[in-house]
Computed example of a mutant assay.
Amino acid sequence: MASLTELSFNWLGFISAMISNISFTYRRIYSKIAMTDMDITNLYAYISIIALIVCIPPAIIFEGPQLLQNGFNDVIAKVGLTV
């Protein structure tokens, strides 16, 4: 919020930071609730799985077209097409 008046303020960066803050808050709340029934290793595993599920759709939406356009062609050019 302190950099809102700066010339190089970026709304996408600000919104991403706020989503990150909210995600960490919900993660902490879930951890406190879930710690009564499981140990710390299982809790970490469940939180990691949930984070993976949450991160896959934005990754496919934002990076998928670039991967399809450039990524596979670069790999095929470097390694070669094997069938």
Rank of each mutant, 00 (worst) to 15 (best):
D37C: 04
I61A: 11
I76M: 09
D37A: 11
I33G: 08
A51V: 13
Y44R: 15
M38R: 06
C55R: 10
D39L: 01
I76V: 06
N73S: 12
I60Y: 03
M35F: 06
P57M: 07
A51W: 14
M38V: 08
A59Q: 04
Y46G: 06
N70D: 13
N70E: 14
S48K: 06
I56M: 12
T41G: 03
C55P: 00
V75S: 05
Q69I: 12
I56N: 01
Y46H: 13
S48H: 01
P57S: 07
D37P: 01
F62Y: 10
M35S: 14
S31R: 14
I29D: 04
T36H: 14
F72D: 00
I76C: 04
M35Y: 04
I61P: 02
L43G: 03
G64C: 04
T41H: 02
I49Y: 14
D37F: 01
T36V: 14
L68W: 10
M35L: 02
K32T: 09
N70K: 12
Y30D: 11
A34K: 15
Q69A: 12
N42D: 10
D74R: 12
G64V: 05
D37S: 06
I49S: 12
G71L: 11
I47G: 03
M35W: 04
A45F: 01
P57I: 05
T41E: 09
I53H: 02
L67P: 02
I47K: 10
L43I: 00
F62K: 12
D37T: 05
Q66L: 14
